[in-house]
């Protein structure tokens, strides 16, 4: 379900997040008359998510996926750009209205252990969003906690436990429970399964999809695990070095990847059939530093298809219905 057919629930326009470099280097730059340099973690990202949809955001470590997530929730302040949630511009919201928006806008963090306060019981952890956003009494909150725990497949007896008494899978379910306690409309999932082992990962993915369907939520699903993305996401955006290089519906993207980076990424996925031989697309060299981003197409230095034209700036354009690619050669 392409987003342009419906009004987007969340839209991100031209999001930029630069982390200025400090230390001696910044001083030298200033002395040399240059602007101090910065890590360009997110460098102009735009996308929209329709209600009920799951948008997958994929890319390798360090490409800026998590920074996009943090910028949306304003856990880091974006350098530029605009995030609209419903009809609210989140980027300009002051502290208290932003805090109230968090009832509808939740996040599941990457590390299920580190994102739980070791000194709070499971019950208190899941109860907290209710305390902050609702006027429910103690008994009502307790009932709601039990209900939410049941929704994520945890028994009510776990409410008295502490994070260190739980297994990794249980911890992540507590994180899910905390995120959905206030019945948010939108949840950002920042690599929610990367800390789980493979056997638990599949079940967690199924649970997330079921929760979205039953509670009518919308997801931004950030992952580098293409199998999970293929299952969970309706649409996929591929990030490379702080920008989106390709965006299409999941079926379209996996069937007809157009950008050389997407192709390389997909060709790296192992196929569970030893007889299948595929052409593995290997990119040369390493990802350039996000401090020294090459001009033109960012993949230029590594792309097996690179042409002189690739030195020209490249933008995301629609090459097929609802299929956008940022490549001169497509």
């Amino acid at each position: 379900m392409p987003s342009r057919w419906r009004v987007a629930l969340l839209s991100v326009e031209g999001l930029v997040k630069h982390f200025p470099l400090g230390g001696a280097r910044a001083w030298l730059d200033r002395l040399g008359g240059q602007a101090p340099r910065s890590v360009r973690a997110v460098d102009g990202v735009s996308f929209a998510v329709a209600p009920g949809e799951t948008l997958g955001l994929v890319g390798e470590s360090g490409c800026g996926k998590s920074t996009v997530a943090r910028s949306i929730l304003r856990l880091v302040e974006p350098t530029a750009g605009r995030v609209t949630f419903g009809d609210v511009n989140l980027t300009t919201l002051s502290a208290e209205p932003l805090r109230r928006q968090r009832r509808d806008l939740q996040m599941v963090f990457q590390d299920p252990t580190a994102s739980l306060n070791p000194r709070l019981s499971v019950g208190r952890t899941v109860e907290e969003p209710l305390r902050r956003h609702t006027t429910l009494g103690t008994g009502e909150r307790r009932a709601r906690v039990a209900e939410v725990l049941a929704q994520v497949g945890l028994g009510p007896e776990l409410a008295g436990r502490y994070s260190h008494e739980l297994s990794g899978g249980q911890r992540q379910r507590v994180n899910f429970a905390r995120a959905i306690a206030t019945r948010p409309r939108f949840v950002v999932l920042d690599e929610p399964t990367s800390a789980l082992d493979v056997s638990l990962r599949a079940r967690a993915i199924l649970l997330l999809d079921e929760l979205r369907a039953t509670l009518g939520m919308t997801y931004l699903f950030i992952s580098h695990d293409l199998a999970s993305v293929k299952y969970l996401a309706h649409r996929v955006a591929v990030m490379y070095l702080g920008t989106i290089v390709e965006e299409a519906s999941t079926a379209e993207l996996f069937a007809r990847p157009l950008h050389p980076y997407t192709r390389a990424l997909l060709s790296a996925v192992p196929v569970p059939d030893p007889d299948v031989r595929r052409a593995r697309i290997v990119l040369a060299g390493e990802v350039p530093s996000p401090i020294d981003i090459p001009g033109g197409c960012r993949l230029r230095g590594r792309c097996p298809l690179a042409q002189p034209v690739c030195a020209e700036p490249v933008t995301l354009r629609e090459v097929a219905p609802a299929h956008r690619v940022a490549c001169h050669l497509v």
Partner: peptide, 13 residues
């Protein structure tokens, strides 16, 4: 820490 970020996300002042 991530739990501090989570605390903010959850709506703590």
């Amino acid at each position: 820490t991530e739990y501090a970020e989570a605390a903010r996300t959850v709506g703590n002042r």
